[in-house]
Design a protein around this nucleic acid. Structure first.
Lengths: 223, 223
DNA sequence: CGTCCCCTTGAGTTATTTCAACACTCGTGG
DNA sequence: CCACGAGTGTTGAAATAACTCAAGGGGACG
């Protein structure tokens, strides 16, 4: 089975004891689970795989990926530390999830979560709130994909990835230009040019390709 | 308050008795509600409005709309008869909903639904399933917006709107080319050209601008 | 030191948008 | 009955944003 044996033959190492470490999936919703390490580019779960677990990023970053028949790739979202992902209402995952960099990820059995939700209305509501939160984020992203220019898409992306970083703060992007392009519906070249252009316009500084310093005026470029 | 008094001063007419008509929101989840008529282009609810009701299309069609500061418009989804919409986890609607054509829409008080869900785990799960279903649809739409060509977007859209109609069947689109464009992230001209092109290639026939007859080969154009 | 991977940049191409004109339908009112 | 205007859809021509193809730079690592 997958969580203990990935398709590429790796055996991700369990950390913190297989048994009963408490994982907080939402405020006030903590269940027994365990933590595993995943290497850069390792698959956390695959499309069509049974959704037996729910996941939470402890450290690192995760992308979820879907592929069109002819190879076109789309990254639906990046999951950062603290984010819960892979929570499905149906029986199977509809997309695959991969570690962007080396990760620690907590796993909770979905069956346990479902039981808790069925017993307790408050837990059920928080579960629903998780899915509803994903929906809200996706709605914003849809607007970005449908109506924003390349420059605006990259600016919006940087604003989101900066998290609580203020103007003047530096932060690191864990993902490659290709990942960003596949998330924003662009090509790597267009993403690269947008970065260059934002830097030229003093909306950001780039001490390194993946290290970003924000300027106030980036917010204006968001559209 | 909105459901009884819309922003444009109209008073939508209640139908079937204000009190206690039973509305089925999901299989096995039926609550007391009432039915109202909305005219073409009338607002069902507004962005930022308190989400006091959950809605179900009885007849007609509804679009949900979000507007960017500079006027760019995006239609997140069309809701057809049988679809539930406007179900929020938070307190406010994040987008507005408008009648595409004259509609009959059932309303259920959200408070009643929340109470039912809190009491009964099965109801809570079905509520969650509704939101999760919206999320799945939106994920497909995201892929369309991010990675498909204009022709593929229109073909995919027609496949979805055709519902159970088979090749050779005709069906009517309730919405304008502008609505379609704003749903697919295109301009009206590009949408119009894609229709013309699909007809020229015998993927569809168009007895009228909004009346479509499918051909098998439309599926190939989907991408 | 060489190789691989990732990122950037330039030049030419293309899909889509923009701007403009025109056709069609449907009410309304003369 | 016809003229008129508003709303909607189609088409053409020019402009442009993003893509494709191609080359080269730089860091990490064996």
């Amino acid at each position: 089975m997958h969580a203990l044996q990935t398709q590429n033959g790796n055996v991700p190492s369990a950390v913190g004891g297989e048994a009963g470490r408490s994982i907080e999936l939402a405020p006030g919703v903590a269940l027994a689970g365990f933590v595993m390490r995943f290497e850069r580019n390792e698959e956390v779960f695959a499309e069509e795989e049974d959704a037996d677990f729910v996941y939470k990023v402890i450290s690192g970053a995760v992308r979820d990926v879907r592929i069109l028949a002819d190879g076109r790739r789309q990254i639906g979202a990046f999951h950062m530390p603290g984010d819960v992902f892979g929570l499905e209402c149906g029986e199977q995952h509809r997309y695959s999830a991969e570690a962007v960099v080396d990760c620690e990820i907590a796993l909770v059995r979905r069956a346990a979560l479902e039981r808790a939700a069925l017993r307790d209305g408050t837990t059920a509501r928080k579960l629903w709130a998780l899915t509803a939160g994903d929906l809200l984020k996706l709605q914003d992203h849809m607007l970005l994909l449908a109506r924003k220019t390349a420059r605006e898409r990259v600016a919006s992306f940087l604003m989101r990835m900066s998290g609580r970083a203020a103007a003047g703060d530096a932060f690191d992007l864990p993902m490659s230009r290709l990942d960003i392009a596949d998330h924003l519906g662009l090509t790597i070249e267009t993403v690269s040019r947008a970065f260059t252009q934002l830097e030229r316009d003093h909306a950001i500084a780039m001490p390194a390709a993946r290290r970003i310093v924000l300027n106030d005026r980036l917010a204006l470029a968001e559209g």
